[in-house]
């Protein structure tokens, strides 16, 4: 890239990269508007958790952020550029997605699955390259699935399968990783495994992570930045310690509660009030 001293975007260059932002974003399924006029900036180089009650539009927002859903109005930008004006593969080299319910093709092995993560990097007739294989090996290693590489994915346990899918997104080799409820259907041990893995990806591999989570305590513990949605609108956004108040939880989730510091981490913990 050529840089000139008086380039107009020098101020932007000082900001951390991988900033995903929504501007007046409306998202709609048919004639049902799910997300209404959302203005949002997600910090680059951080772990963001999107939380909110059922049907608040959090998964819809994630789908809008990765271009699975075209905005009815407004725009989504990545470092200032409209993602709907970027070529699909170029965008897929910047951000990877773990959908809520991916389809595991029958009898496909872990390695074969992870190799598909290289799709946006390949051209039609180019053979599999050393860089492709290196990315796959790295993804298998980071997710601890290299010992499972020859096993069919549909025969793995839920936790192993989720790690194989995360490995696919890692092989995509993107700066941003978006995950839609990655812990659903997993037992507590595997939920924590997945969240620890995500934290490590952020900390060791420098990925920007955006994930939709169901559990407020887990979101507060694992995220640097919390986005709380309520009925398709932004209820609050910021560091969990500042955002998560008893007043907010009662307003958004209709749960009267106390917020206490997590005895392990000091992050806010939601304790619902006992019924009297």
């Amino acid at each position: 890239m050529t840089t000139t001293t008086d380039a107009p975007d020098t101020s932007d260059a000082a900001l951390p990269a991988d900033r995903l932002a929504a501007h007046g974003l409306h998202l709609r399924y048919g004639d049902r508007t799910v997300v209404r006029g959302l203005d949002l900036e997600l910090p680059g180089g951080a772990v963001t958790a999107i939380v909110g009650p059922n049907a608040c539009g959090k998964s819809t927002l994630l789908r809008g952020l990765v271009r699975l859903l075209a905005p009815a109005a407004g725009a989504v930008t990545l470092d200032g550029a409209d993602i709907h004006r970027m070529p699909a593969r170029a965008l897929a080299r910047r951000m990877g997605l773990l959908p809520q319910q991916p389809v595991t093709p029958e009898a496909v092995t872990v390695e074969a699955l992870v190799r598909l993560g290289r799709y946006p990097h390949q051209r039609m007739l180019t053979p599999w390259s050393a860089a492709d294989q290196a990315a796959v090996e790295e993804a298998l290693r980071r997710t601890g699935t290299d010992a499972l590489r020859d096993r069919p994915v549909d025969q793995l346990s839920g936790g192993q399968r989720q790690r194989a899918w995360i490995a696919l997104a890692l092989a995509q080799d993107t700066d941003l990783l978006l995950l839609d409820e990655p812990t659903t259907f997993l037992d507590l041990r595997h939920q924590l495994d997945v969240l620890d893995l995500v934290t490590d990806l952020h900390r060791d591999a420098g990925r920007t992570v955006v994930m939709v989570l169901h559990d407020l305590g887990q979101a507060a513990r694992y995220a640097d930045h919390l986005v709380v949605l309520h009925d398709g609108e932004l209820a609050a956004a910021g560091p969990p310690g500042e955002v998560l108040t008893a007043e907010l939880v009662e307003r958004v989730f209709q749960v009267p509660c106390r917020i206490v510091p997590d005895p392990e981490t000091g992050t806010p913990l939601v304790v619902p009030l006992a019924r009297r």
Partner: peptide, 14 residues
């Protein structure tokens, strides 16, 4: 093969 992963995953892969 990418389409086999479901429409969401395929979209995420560009």
């Amino acid at each position: 093969a990418v389409l086999d992963l479901g429409d969401d995953s395929a979209g995420g892969l560009g």
